[in-house]
């Protein structure tokens, strides 16, 4: 576990951390091959395409073929990064990912763009179950970065890592939370942002910014929380979670995903398997497909904003008394 101070800012419309990270990776690692499925601009692989045309292959709108071509490339020692929207590189190609990538433990990196409610394209394009689908697969590492710093650091880290990885990818204007000079992303390591004794908040992905925004509101209510950020959903940092759970009776998880088999379920498993006995509140989508809409609208509609986090915590603390 590492402690870190946060800064919350927008990375800027043109910053596009993934686009930058991929080009930098292309410079340093010549085995990296980028595969796309007709969404080069949307998945921010156009920078790599223009810089390294010999190592970029557009497979067209054919994700199943894209995934298995990646497997063939990886078998020959290349490091393929496979791209599309999160829904298509998980739901649509689940059997290909399971049988060829995970089962054979093949070194393919799967990048799912616009995760969960960050997609404005409606439920067909909202990956609200991708963490669940990927977490269920043996051998698969699953990452949900929270900000531009994590994206910039996670991309080279997953290329170094031997084995299949699924990583969610926010695009364009991405929150900037961690100080790039001080933060050190590691696969499988949680980051403790604040320590307190009243409640333990555990967040992943884009929800970290909402959790951070809840901190001043909690302070106004004299609530002193622990805030733990989990970027690697699998393998999860069990040690850090047990430690964070020991600080307070109440744990609240928040994720840009269904509450089933993503972050919240992972935490529930750790609490139960270790006999910790904490009360757990899981925030996220509850057994429903979301409506189309902007991120702001959807966070409000599904009660995932900082205000809702505070309400849930107050409710949880009241019930404990």
């Amino acid at each position: 576990m590492q402690e870190c101070k946060y800064i919350l800012a927008k990375s800027g419309q043109d910053f596009a951390p993934y686009k930058r990270a991929l080009v930098m990776l292309g410079e340093s690692n010549k085995r990296v091959i980028v595969l796309g499925a007709d969404l080069s601009n949307s998945t921010e692989i156009d920078g790599f395409r223009d810089r390294f045309p010999d190592r970029f292959f557009n497979i067209g709108v054919a994700e199943q073929n894209e995934m298995n071509i990646a497997v063939g490339l990886a078998i020959e020692g290349e490091i393929p990064f496979v791209h599309s929207f999160g829904v298509f590189v998980t739901r649509r190609v689940y059997e290909q990912v399971c049988v060829q990538v995970a089962m054979q433990n093949i070194n393919v990196k799967i990048v799912g763009s616009i995760p969960g409610l960050t997609s404005r394209l409606g439920p067909t394009h909202q990956a609200i179950d991708d963490l669940a689908l990927m977490r269920t697969l043996p051998n698969m590492t699953v990452i949900d970065p929270a900000d531009a710093t994590e994206i910039l650091q996670a991309v080279p880290a997953i290329a170094e890592h031997s084995g299949p990885v699924y990583i969610r990818m926010m695009r364009r204007e991405v929150p900037l939370i961690f100080d790039p000079e001080k933060y050190h992303f590691q696969i499988g390591k949680a980051a403790c942002i604040q320590e307190g004794q009243d409640v333990t908040i555990i967040a992943c992905g884009v929800m970290l910014q909402n959790a951070l925004a809840s901190l001043p509101l909690l302070e106004q209510n004299n609530i002193n929380p622990t805030l733990l950020h989990i970027s690697t959903i699998k393998p999860i940092d069990t040690t850090a979670i047990i430690e964070a759970a020991s600080k307070s009776r109440l744990i609240i998880t928040i994720e840009n995903h269904l509450i089933t088999n993503g972050l919240g379920s992972s935490i529930a498993e750790i609490i139960a398997e270790n006999g910790l006995g904490n009360t757990l509140i899981r925030m996220g989508l509850r057994d429903e497909f979301a409506a189309p809409g902007t991120q702001e609208y959807l966070f409000e509609r599904y009660q995932l904003n900082s205000r809702h986090i505070v309400e849930k915590i107050l409710e949880g603390l009241k019930n404990k008394k």
Partner: peptide
């Protein structure tokens, strides 16, 4: 598909 990937490599 994988054979295509191997040939491409």
């Amino acid at each position: 598909s994988a054979a295509c990937g191997m040939a491409l490599a």
